[in-house]
Structure formats: structure tokens, C-alpha cells
Design a protein around this nucleic acid. Structure first.
Length: 522
RNA sequence: GGCGCUAUCAUCUAAUGGUUAGGAUAAGUGGUUUUCAUCCACUAAAUCGGGGUUCGAUUCCCCGUAGCGCUACCA
């Protein structure tokens, strides 16, 4: 029927709320979102909280916050309201697996009744011993199906034994002993598995919760998911999922497995080898749009030479057929470059806003952007505009927002430096002193309106001054830079001067020049 | 050990049964410049190995090799 292909696309992102958001999870969520949006479908957020021992308080709210910042949206499923309360929306709920227990139990019972699944009473000790034995014999460690062949009497006995002890047996899914199962993957193509090599997976745990394998199949079916987008590490369990679909008599979803994201040593991306959480990257001062663009290119590319993509463009161009199969090493060099590109594009006032937390962190500011005070020079006027000018100067130098502190200290605090630094390589201390004194006069004589216009970031007056006196450019600008910044690398000194003037006034410039002169006079 | 996946510059990747194997990041060199950055130009840098198929394979097939993933009452 043509209906099948016209069925509305529904994808889901189904994380376990076990902590921070892994960069790989972001990529998975992004791709399932892009695929849904590209196909005018729905994107569902389902929470897989079936492992009660690993739950982390607040993980869902954190996940939603991170995804929200990154622009990955959900049309359905769990969400957090303005009061921070976890709620859900949509017609296919509940979307929290822990609230769906009766559904799973009913379906497990169905499988048990039809002998497609069976209770297993084996102890952890026996299973451990079994595994050890098999490993020692170099055999694949698999459940030996002991409990599958229990007679009716034995089964009843075990049951009452367990009941008396107040514990429940697990339920295992009986894999077929012959035949093959083929996974048709949208990224990896067809992959064939021998059924007899598949383990009789536990589908219901003794605490009454389902395992992932059962829950994912039941939920994807009832939530009418059409495409499962998940990490490559799930490929080996996919045949088990397919067999479960078959046991229930359901049509399976389509599958698209995504290649792994790797550490520099090519192992699966993990903590220990650097930051892996989206929060870490954001805190370090990567812009969401840069991180998103970067992550989108891990395992996917448009096959054109375009490198920069907005979310809208990604939605427009995303295609599962263009996802590649080999794992991708996360290369922060490229991320840095991309981030720099996005920073450069920012409007200054916006950039200044983003920078404030990093200035605060570096101890240069405290308080909020409005009514901010400058700690070290509290008597001098501080304006929001000042920060914007600083942002403008640093815009094309910044790779990460977190670098702002170390680069702009002199805008908040008088610099300290060795007097020798004031001397240009092609000049002398005597000359530097002379030039600085000349500069003091130059600044004193500048008409105030020169600085009061908004075009402060030009240095034509300075150029005129140098040219008129036929000075060596460096012999003037080098001492000026050092006097103002204390650094040997900085934005242009004339620009720095005009920004200083805007924020701290002419007096501050003159003070710094005087200080330099007296340092050279010693 | 078993099962599975993968394999193009250091990294992300493009391409093709016939090309000087392309781009980007990083690196290096030069230019612009008062420094740093930007920007521009240039340079170096790759088809894992062996067999087939073919007039011709980096591309298709097989076998190796390597790397990785999975192998729980975790997801």
C-alpha cells in the first residue's frame, strides 16, 4: 500500500536520565530531530528510566535545558514547565518508561503464554559460574536455556519457592534455534545474524521492570515511531529487537544506526580523555550554534564544500543517506576554528552579553550587566558600552569565550610590566620615553569630541600624528601599546586608547602614559 | 574467545571503473602589518596489505591486517 510510505514520520530520542548530556547523545538527538523536521514529522522525547539504580536527580530537566539551548526540539513527550516541573504532552503517553510498567508486564505475559518467553530461576552465582566456564572453554558466554526445559511440576515448585522467599523470577525471551535475522539498516545496509548465536535475553527483571530490549520494542510500536535513530553500539541487539517485533506480530520500525564518535585514540568517546558533556563545551565558551554545526558534521556532510550551517540549513539538507559508516574522531582544533567563525559574526552587544559571565569568573566584573561596577577601578565610570567596545576589539581574536579574561585584564586594571618592555626592538629607552611624552601631549590636545563620536575604533588621527612627525610607526605604537596594556600582543594601541577613553576616561590614559614615562626615568 | 562493523592526508571528509585523488582544520612558508589576531597566497600531507575481476582499480569481490563495538536482571 502506498499508505506505508506516506505515513507520518515519527522519530524519538530516548535517553536514560543518568547524568550529564554526552556529546554523542547530542549528535543522536540532533540527527533524529533533523530527520523528523526534514520530513515534516514529529520528534518525541521518551525517558528510559528502567534502571532504577542509575537514576540521577534532575537529569531530565538538565537534558531539556541543554537540548533547548542547542535548538533541538521535541514535539511530544517529556518537558519541563516554567516552574521546573516535569510534565508530558502528546497522545502516546506516558512517556516515562517507569510509568508504563503494566503495559510491559502484559506483553511479557503474552509471550510467556505463547511459550515465546519463559521464567528463569537461575541465580547470579550460577550464571557467573556458567559464564566463567564458557569463557575458559573459549566458548561464547550465553545462557544455557536451563530453565526453558523445566517440566510443569518443576516450574510450579520453583514458583512457589520464589513466592515464599518474596522474590520474582526474571523472564527470558526464547530466541529461535535456527534461521537468520537480517537487519536492514539505513546507514549500514543489510547485516545478517545467525539466530542460534543470539542469547536468550532477559526481558523482565526481578524488580518488575523491563530491560531496554523489551521496553524499546513495545514503546516504539505503541508510540508509532517510524524511524529509530541511535548509536552504532546498538547494532548487535537489533536482531533481538526484530525477533521481538515478530513475536508480537508487529511491523518493525526502520533503523538508522549512527557511527561512533571517537577519542583521539579511536576508542569510543569517553570521559577520562577530555570533556564529553555538552555542558562542559558550553561552559568553556563554545557557542551553541558552533557546537551544533560541528556535531552535525561528525558522521554527516552535505557533499558540497559548504562548512557553515545554521540549524535551518541543516534541516533543509539533512539526509540519512549521507551519513557515513566510519567512526569520527572529535577534533577540537576544528571546533575552535568554527567557534571563532561564529564569534566573529556576533553583533558586539550580543557578544558582550555572552562574555559577561566569563569576565565575572575572571574576577574583573561583578554583578549584572546593567549597573555593573568595575572592581579595580571603581571610581571610574563603567558603561555597558565599554564592554561592547572591548568585545568589538577582541571579536576576531577569540576562539572561546573563556579566553576573554586573560586577554582583556588591562581594560579593568592598570597593567604591570617590566620597563624594558616599553622599548621597541628597533629603538632605545631614551627614544621610547620621548615618544611617550609626545603622546601625552598628543592625547591632551585631542578635542574631546574625537572620542565622543561612536566611530572610536579608527586610528586615522594617530596615523596623521605619526606621519606628520615622520616617526617610525613602531617606535610610537609599541611603547603606547605596552604603556596601555602591559602586553606585547594586543589589539591596535590607538583602538585600545579609544576604548579606554570611552570606559575610563582620558585621565586613565594619561596616568598609564605617565607611569610608563616614570618607569623609564628610573 | 564469539559475533558484527569500519578502513582516503595528523583530523573531519569529497570523488571516480580511467582525475595532477578535491576541500576544510591543524602544520609550515611568504605577503599585509607597530604586536597578536584576521585576511590573502603558497607548500608539505592520504587511497592499510595481498590476491582476483577488468584493457584499466583507490573504487567491485575474496583473504589477510588493524582499529573499534557488542558479548549484564546497564542503557
Amino acid at each position: 500500500m502506498a499508505q506505508t510510505s506516506e505515513k507520518k514520520v515519527r522519530t524519538r530520542f530516548a535517553p536514560s536520565p543518568t547524568g550529564f548530556v554526552h556529546i554523542g547523545s547530542l549528535r543522536t538527538a540532533l540527527f533524529s530531530f533533523l530527520f523528523a523536521r526534514h520530513n515534516k514529522g514529529a520528534h518525541v522525547l521518551r525517558i528510559e528510566d528502567t534502571d532504577q539504580s542509575r537514576l540521577v536527580e534532575g537529569a531530565v530537566a538538565n537534558l531539556l535545558m541543554v537540548m533547548g539551548r542547542m535548538g533541538v526540539e521535541f514535539d511530544e513527550g517529556a518537558y519541563v514547565n516554567a516552574e521546573g516541573k516535569l510534565l508530558e504532552r502528546g497522545e502516546f503517553g506516558p512517556y516515562l518508561q517507569s510509568e508504563r510498567l503494566p503495559i510491559y508486564q502484559k506483553h511479557v505475559q503474552e509471550l510467556v503464554d505463547s511459550k515465546k518467553a519463559y521464567h528463569c530461576f537461575c541465580t547470579e552465582e550460577r550464571l557467573d559460574a556458567l559464564r566463567k566456564e564458557q569463557t575458559a572453554l573459549k566458548k561464547p558466554p550465553m545462557y544455557d536455556k536451563l530453565c526453558k526445559s523445566l517440566t510443569e511440576d518443576e516450574l510450579q515448585n520453583k514458583m512457589s519457592e520464589f513466592n515464599a522467599a518474596g522474590i520474582s523470577p526474571v523472564v527470558r525471551f526464547a530466541m529461535p534455534s535456527e534461521g537468520t535475522t537480517t537487519v536492514h539498516d539505513l546507514v549500514f545496509g543489510d547485516i545478517r545474524y545467525e539466530n542460534k548465536l543470539l542469547d536468550d535475553q532477559v526481558i523482565l527483571k526481578s524488580d518488575g521492570f523491563p530491560t531496554y530490549h523489551l521496553a524499546v520494542v513495545v514503546d516504539d510500536h505503541y508510540m508509532e515511531i517510524t524511524h529509530v535513530v541511535r548509536g552504532e553500539e546498538w547494532i548487535p541487539s537489533t536482531p533481538k529487537h526484530l525477533l521481538l517485533y515478530e513475536a508480537f506480530g508487529w511491523v518493525p520500525t526502520s533503523f538508522a544506526h549512527l557511527p561512533l564518535i571517537l577519542n583521539p585514540d579511536k576508542s569510543k568517546l569517553s570521559k577520562r580523555q577530555g570533556d564529553v558533556s555538552v555542558e562542559d563545551f558550553l561552559n568553556k565558551g563554545y557557542l551553541p550554534e558552533a557546537l551544533l554545526n560541528f556535531v552535525a558534521f561528525l558522521g554527516w556532510n552535505p557533499k558540497t564544500e559548504q562548512e557553515k550551517f545554521s540549524l535551518e540549513e541543516l534541516i533543509e539538507q539533512f539526509d540519512l543517506a549521507k551519513v557515513n559508516k566510519s567512526g569520527a574522531v572529535l577534533d577540537t582544533n576544528k571546533l575552535d576554528w568554527l567557534n571563532g567563525q561564529y564569534i566573529k559574526q556576533k553583533v558586539s552587544h550580543e557578544l558582550a552579553n555572552l562574555l559577561v559571565p566569563y569576565w565575572v569568573e575572571a574576577g574583573m566584573l561583578h554583578g549584572q550587566l546593567n549597573n555593573l561596577t568595575i572592581k579595580q577601578l571603581e571610581d571610574l565610570p563603567a558603561k555597558r558600552e565599554y564592554l561592547e567596545f572591548i568585545a568589538t576589539l577582541e571579536k576576531e581574536r577569540l576562539k572561546k569565550l573563556s579566553e576573554i579574561g586573560e586577554r582583556t585584564g588591562y581594560f579593568f586594571k592598570r597593567p604591570e610590566y617590566e620597563p624594558e618592555l616599553l622599548v621597541w626592538k628597533k629603538s632605545t629607552a631614551e627614544d621610547a620615553k620621548e615618544k611617550l611624552q609626545g603622546l601625552i601631549t598628543f592625547f591632551k590636545n585631542l578635542p574631546a569630541e574625537v572620542f565622543n563620536t561612536h566611530e572610536t575604533l579608527q586610528n586615522s588621527l594617530m596615523e596623521d600624528y605619526i606621519q606628520k612627525n615622520q616617526y617610525d610607526v613602531g617606535s610610537v605604537l609599541w611603547p603606547l601599546r605596552v604603556a596601555l596594556t602591559g602586553e606585547k600582543a594586543s589589539p591596535g594601541p590607538a583602538e585600545v586608547a579609544s576604548v579606554l577613553f570611552r570606559g575610563l576616561g582620558l585621565e586613565e590614559i594619561l596616568t598609564r602614559l605617565q607611569t610608563a614615562v616614570s618607569l623609564l626615568s628610573k
